[in-house]
Design a protein around this nucleic acid. Structure first.
Lengths: 200, 200
DNA sequence: TTGACATGATACGTATATGTATCATTTAAT
DNA sequence: ATTAAATGATACATATACGTATCATGTCAA
């Protein structure tokens, strides 16, 4: 077996990894999926899921923590070597597209925020993103009248659109990344003359 | 109470209406919500839900049909009196924001597509949207290299971002409409010099 | 071979969700 | 006041999901 390790995230293909991957994928498509469904998607039986992970609550928690790790790592290596906040933001969007499922899981499951550790991580993540957006605004690359909360919501939304479209087979994943950047930043970037709001 | 009637969609505040409204709202936030949860959100008991609507499957079907009606109506009156496809599209986005929940429900519940009537309606809706996008491309207002499927996915994504952000209290609903238009069409509109892809 | 380990098979009890039926209560119209 | 309609209260059966325990099987390493 080939072990691919990107910094701190081991893709071990262990049973636990398979289960977490299956969970985020299945739950995003069928939020009412049972643990049996998830186990089947991972190619194991339900008893194994319970043995390896535990209860449903623990599963959701592990999925969320894994999602946060992935996003952290992706963002971290994406901004490396880039100076302008705007360039860093664009890189982050592109880097997050492969993890759009994980990102969306966090966004769509507010119940996991009850966990203090997850809440803390999400808050930190959000804060770092806000800071970056503020920098990009200060550097004149993002329209300052657009609220950060809106930008973050749109970011997740566009990520999810990219993942959905790619998964539906309409678009290659690479193209989806490019389109996500195009769509999001074409929209929040200062235009030469006015904004799209003119004449709306 | 003020009765608002837009063409064919009566806001009767009947028990059924309250239940459908509660269902789309609750299920979007808690996809695992039970029928009891939905009934409670509608201010009735579960037995009443069963009496008025029927089984869970019938509930989902009714929610989907109602969503399609709402979207149809909103789009229909939005394009009225506008000639350019681009203007019609912008109007549609703005008009759909108040129905983003319904829109998102359809997008997030592929199981209801099994119903032939719903599948047919969705297909028709999609086709009309594609035609409109094609016209806007032909008129030179939308970047032609962006796939229609991407544009439709982004449209739903941005709608949902608008609804989420508005519901979270960060932004007023009116502002959310404007921001949705700004974000989406700022991104897919031809820029004076190059696209946001440059330098990505 | 032996033993440790992971997984499957099976069974069990419990909890929750679902759908229905019956009767009581309220409300509005006549 | 009386009736009809809508809703609630209650109970019931059934199905599904969940979590755990026990034993069997397979696999890999020492």
């Amino acid at each position: 077996m080939i072990h691919i390790r990107i910094m701190s995230i081991p893709l071990n293909n262990t049973t636990k990894d398979k289960l977490l991957e299956a969970a985020v994928r299945v739950l995003n498509m069928q939020p009412r999926a049972s643990l049996a469904d998830i186990a089947e998607a991972a190619g194991v039986k339900r008893v194994t899921l319970h043995r390896v992970i535990g209860t449903r609550e623990e599963l959701l928690r592990d999925v969320a923590l894994r999602a946060l790790e992935q996003m952290d790592e992706a963002c971290y290596s994406a901004v490396k070597g880039k100076r302008k906040a705007f360039e860093q933001l664009k890189a982050i969007v592109g880097a997050l597209v492969p993890y759009a499922d994980s990102c969306h899981f966090l966004w769509k499951n507010p119940d996991v925020w009850d966990d203090p550790e997850i809440a803390r991580e999400i808050k930190r993540h959000d804060q770092e993103l806000c800071d970056l957006i503020d920098r990009a605004k200060a550097e004149g690359d993002i329209l300052s009248f657009i609220p950060n909360s809106w930008i973050i919501a749109s970011l997740d939304a566009v990520l999810y659109a990219a993942a959905s479209t790619a998964k539906a087979g309409n678009i290659a994943t690479n193209d989806a990344s490019a389109l996500a950047i195009q769509t999001l930043f074409g929209g929040i970037t200062k235009k030469v003359k006015g904004t799209a709001l003119a004449g709306a």
